[in-house]
């Protein structure tokens, strides 16, 4: 891409969702969502279970069809968008394993297919896989079976797979769900490095946790509508939603926010 084209692109939002509606079966899940992510931003999508945050993200990557509204990725309408190597996606998963054993390297290498497509794997592809695993602190587990990993390590592998794409935009659906504190810190550091490199990030979170300092903006969904779009709220998750009466007592204020990631 030449310089003027790149400059023009910089002004365009990386993700632009306008008036998006979507349903799962007969149930409307998104009811007119406007969402914009600009280049270099780190945006968290928050909300209670069933608020539509996961559906919004899956609609952005084309896994849930929109019944109305418009979606543009890097300034291109979704139906004409083919440049998937610019996007790294971390789906909501509890495991990176499937029905046949596979090593960490094999699973992460799948990310490179965004660039090689039906072609062969080259040196640069193998290097990118190692680099992605180094970033999440799993380079020493390259040859291990994913079946032997802990929950947090599965999540690190899934994130490394998205990083192996070498994306400009990282989209993550609950990357911290079921992740132990040590892995959360590792992932927060990996993300910090990616963001410093200029990667744009959109991530679904149940609570901000150790990622809080990285987040530029938070969008809160409730019942398929945006109810907050601005600086990250003090309290997060359910607590951020208007109308939520914060009545339950906390035994120890120092314990807030709960950072186990197990509440979700």
């Amino acid at each position: 891409m030449n310089q003027p084209e790149r400059a023009k692109e910089d002004e365009q939002p990386v993700i632009s969702l306008r008036g998006a509606t979507a349903s799962l079966g007969a149930r409307p899940v998104l009811r007119g969502v406007d969402l914009e992510v600009r280049r270099g931003e780190v945006v968290a999508l928050l909300g209670a279970n069933g608020s539509g945050k996961s559906t919004a993200v899956r609609a952005i990557v084309g896994q849930v069809p929109l019944t109305g509204g418009e979606l543009e990725l890097f300034g291109t309408p979704k139906r004409r968008f083919r440049d998937w190597a610019r996007i790294g996606y971390v789906p909501q998963r509890t495991t990176a394993a499937a029905g046949v054993p596979a090593t960490v390297r094999e699973v992460v290498s799948a990310g490179r297919l965004a660039r090689t497509k039906l072609g062969f794997s080259r040196r640069a592809d193998r290097d990118a896989v190692v680099k992605a695993l180094e970033l999440v602190g799993m380079a020493d587990r390259l040859k291990d079976s994913v079946n032997a990993l802990s929950g947090g390590q599965h999540q690190r592998v899934l994130i490394a797979r998205a990083l192996a794409v070498e994306p400009e935009l990282l989209i993550m659906d609950e990357p911290m769900a079921g992740v132990d504190l040590a892995s959360q810190e590792v992932l927060a550091n990996a993300l910090r490095e990616e963001v410093a490199r200029g990667t744009t990030v959109l991530l679904v979170l149940h609570e901000l946790g150790p990622l809080e300092p990285l987040i530029d903006r938070a969008i809160v969904l409730r019942d398929g509508c945006v109810v907050h779009d601005g600086p990250p709220p003090e309290a997060v998750g359910q607590h951020a939603l208007p109308g939520h009466d914060h009545v339950h007592p906390h035994a120890d204020p120092a314990a807030e926010p709960t950072r186990t990631g197990l509440l979700s």
Binding site: V61, G62, Q63, R82, D83, W84, A85, I87, Y89, P91, R93, A96, A98, G99, V100, A102, E106, V107, A110, G111, L113, A114, K117, L118, R161, V165
Partner: peptide, 15 residues
């Protein structure tokens, strides 16, 4: 391998 391991991820790589 990629589509049988994680079909949703494979779709987002543009395969």
């Amino acid at each position: 391998f990629a589509i049988c391991q994680d079909e949703e991820f494979a779709r987002v790589t543009g395969l």
